[in-house]
Simulated scan of single mutants.
Amino acid sequence: MSKVIRVKYEKGVLKPLEPLELSEGEELLVKIIVAEERRRLIRRHRGSLGQVPKELLDKFMLEAEEQ
């Protein structure tokens, strides 16, 4: 299974912002993408090919991050 989730870094720990269906002790691979960098990319390209709702851009960005 592969899934993109949002997390918040607090006091040295990554905390998921949504429930996870994981077994205790399960090992995961984590790819770090700073949300502000992603927002900058969206702002830079939004409207390049016409008007696109931000929600749709967010969906595409999350799908791309899963690749």
Rank of each mutant, 00 (worst) to 15 (best):
F60D: 03
L49A: 10
R39F: 04
H45S: 10
E63V: 03
D58P: 02
P19W: 08
Q51W: 14
R44K: 13
K15Q: 07
L56Q: 01
L17N: 04
E27K: 14
L20V: 15
R44E: 14
L57F: 00
Q51L: 11
S2W: 01
E37D: 11
G12L: 05
G47C: 08
S23K: 12
L56F: 02
E37T: 14
E63Q: 03
E65Q: 10
L20D: 02
F60L: 06
R38L: 15
E65A: 14
M61I: 12
E65S: 10
E36W: 05
R43A: 13
V52N: 00
L17A: 04
L20S: 05
L41Q: 09
E10R: 06
R39A: 06
Y9N: 07
L62T: 10
V52G: 00
S48V: 13
E66F: 00
E26M: 05
E37K: 15
G50T: 02
I5P: 02
Y9L: 15
K59T: 10
E66S: 09
M1T: 14
A35C: 08
E65N: 09
M1F: 03
R6D: 09
E66K: 15
V34C: 07
K3N: 04
G25Y: 02
S2Y: 01
Q51K: 10
K11H: 07
V13R: 03
V7P: 04
E10G: 05
L28H: 10
D58F: 00
S2H: 04
P53G: 03
R40P: 05
P16L: 07
E63C: 03
E27V: 15
M61C: 07
E55A: 05
H45E: 13
Q67F: 12
P19H: 07
A35F: 08
R38C: 13
L22P: 08
V30I: 14
H45K: 13
P16G: 08
E55Q: 03
L49G: 05
E21T: 14
E18H: 02
E37P: 06
K15C: 04
S23Y: 04
L57E: 00
R6A: 13
I42Q: 02
L57I: 01
F60E: 05
A35N: 12
L28N: 09
F60N: 01
K15G: 03
V34N: 14
K15H: 12
L29N: 11
K8M: 14
E63Y: 00
V34R: 14
P53Q: 02
S2Q: 11
L14I: 06
L56V: 07
D58T: 01
L29R: 15
R43V: 15
Q67P: 11
L22K: 01
R43C: 09
L62Q: 06
D58M: 01
S23E: 12
L56S: 02
S23A: 13
K3C: 02
R44C: 05
R46I: 15
K31M: 08
E10W: 07
P19V: 08
Q67G: 15
V34D: 14
D58K: 00
R39S: 04
E21G: 12
G12F: 01
K31T: 15
E21Y: 06
L62S: 08
M1C: 09
E37Y: 13
R44S: 08
M1A: 12
K31E: 09
E27L: 11
